[in-house]
Design a protein around this nucleic acid. Sequence first.
DNA 1: TACAATATGATAATGATTATCATTCCTGAG
DNA 2: CTCAGGAATGATAATCATTATCATATTGTA
Lengths: 142, 142
Amino acid sequence: MDRDPSAEKNCAAVSAVPPPPGLTPGQQAVLTALRQQPQPLSAQALHGVMAVQRSIGLATVYRALDLLKLLGLVQHRVTLSGETLYSVVEHDHHYLTCLQCGVSVPVETCPVQELVAHLQRTNSFRIYYHTLEFFGVCDRCS
Amino acid sequence: MDRDPSAEKNCAAVSAVPPPPGLTPGQQAVLTALRQQPQPLSAQALHGVMAVQRSIGLATVYRALDLLKLLGLVQHRVTLSGETLYSVVEHDHHYLTCLQCGVSVPVETCPVQELVAHLQRTNSFRIYYHTLEFFGVCDRCS
DNA sequence: TACAATATGATAATGATTATCATTCCTGAG
DNA sequence: CTCAGGAATGATAATCATTATCATATTGTA
Ligand SMILES: [Zn+2]
Ligand SMILES: [Zn+2]
Ligand SMILES: [Zn+2]
Ligand SMILES: [Zn+2]
């Protein structure tokens, strides 16, 4: 996919929320499929659910997810078992995870929005998303 | 065969801030080595720095780090490249990471302490540590 | 001392992710 | 319209941090 060099920075990459830029059909399909998932899921799991309706290579799914991250459309988090889970950036949920049994429970609140705005200014970073995870030992495991 | 009394079981004497339980010499060595590191580092890197003074197996380092996490003495975070970095829980630093070049800059503030206290009560979880990471694209990469 | 339980270390196995590379698709010039 | 260059794709091999194995060493206890 080659884009007009002069217009390179005008696409949706600038803001995290707006409509998708010039994505290929495969990349578009990955984004669409991810939007339909209620929970974050791994690249392989996503590849699994996509394969039902549309043939797509696993490597392409990985590559599309990487690109979508760079565009600020997709976020990731890593489980205790080392799997990377993906979700759309609109999904701002955080988790409390047991180090022993691995169970994860969602956390409702997110106290970092202000901090994001502050960092945005002081660091000349374009911030797309954040992860906030709590680790400990659950009731049953302690 | 009597052993040196000063080399008693449980090296509990070395402790300072948190009351360490009965750790084996190997586990204690891992904790001590980790405390001397100014930055979070991988299990393999820690194994490397430890090997200089004390022979220890890589598997033992991994196992000790896992145990120390369960004891609430050590925390972890995962880099973009998939490496797991370890540090003592007292090290409550967070990072802003570029999705393109991978550069990480530290963030000073941490706005989650109150939330931790609240979650502690409402979830019957014993919370040991948390990770807070921001992802985006740095100045030079955008 | 003898026994059971746990820790250790060397190494093989695992598995998610990446790299490779040949093929296909797209686009813009001529 | 046709062609060439560049990007995207897919199948597969390679990578590499982490785990599992398993034999040995250590520890605690009676
Ligand atoms: Zn648990
Ligand atoms: Zn949040
Ligand atoms: Zn960068
Ligand atoms: Zn913090």
